[in-house]
Nucleic acid binder design. Structure first.
Lengths: 157, 157
DNA sequence: ATTTGTGCAAATCGTTTGCATCTGA
DNA sequence: TCAGATGCAAACGATTTGCACAAAT
């Protein structure tokens, strides 16, 4: 069995984004508006890049390069702004797997990640692919906001 | 119950480091030599700061400040070199919880972490405080090198 | 004497910020 | 109109690098 089995989740946004071109554009506009973000030229373009074709794990630089190659005029600063805004409204999720780069995941549903060392590639693992048991007592006054599991993998022998 | 209960592990190095002053110094020298690292002035001083008093979660900057305040002459570059060398020989473990800073843990035994958001504080969780179940099939040719669990917590209401 | 480590300062890299200029409602 | 968004370039913080000097075996 290969990884494809793990990459076929869906969060609300993706379902919309996965639809037809015309309606997808409309949906994205609606999604942004509903999130309280003005559907500007660049935000729509970035949303299309992010949500227009299945789930992805991206970095600011990656999105920037794609935008440029698609002749979408955006500045890196705007990419960063947008990624953070999208994250703030729940359209994206930040994934901490590397202490030098920030990755964003378009799949905001409950799941975990595998990180391929050396290749710096992130793979989604279904939420139930990892079973988290008892989490011992926490310091009093502390509450869990999220449990992140990163399965670090490497090319086997 | 409070967090103190989670901070009393021990890995080999710490056991040695926890011993008396004089012998501790000797042990550290031995540990470094055994690890194939010359026991230089700064490495010994840093080892003392790192392993001399229980387990800790540190950043390069933190160790640098401590060294300076203890009148140990070290440069930041050397701190980084040392932290990485120690990690390479298994005396330290890198903890990825934040995508902007790199943390090192003097506890190299099997365990996980809780990360206090906002406060950027790391707390050790016993290896058995988190139960990891089945990890679904991985892409063929991939093998697990480690499973990191980060329980993100915040001050409760 | 040789090899290895150290310090400094400059260089890098990802990310953020300040501010003038645009743009969507 | 005008709050909100964008772009640019400069600023930043963490980390790395190059290279001359110092220290360990």
């Amino acid at each position: 069995m290969d990884m494809e089995d793990h990459t076929t989740f869906n969060s609300g946004v993706a379902l919309l984004a996965d639809s037809v071109e015309g309606s997808a554009a409309t949906s994205l506009r609606t999604i942004l508006r509903d999130a309280g973000l003005r559907p500007t030229r660049q935000r729509l373009a970035l949303a299309e890049i992010l949500f227009g074709n299945g789930h992805r794990h991206v970095t600011a630089e990656l999105i920037y390069d794609e935008a440029i190659s698609k002749a979408v005029p955006v500045s890196l600063a705007t990419i960063y702004n947008t990624l953070h805004q999208f994250t703030a409204v729940g359209l994206l999720r930040e994934v901490v797997v590397d202490s030098s780069k920030t990755y964003f995941d378009t799949n905001t549903s409950e799941h975990h990640h595998a990180f391929v060392e050396g290749r710096d590639e992130i793979i989604d693992l279904p939420g139930d692919a990892v079973e988290i048991g008892e989490i011992g007592p926490l310091p009093s006054g502390m509450e869990i906001s999220r449990v992140d599991v990163v399965v670090r993998v490497r090319k086997g022998s």
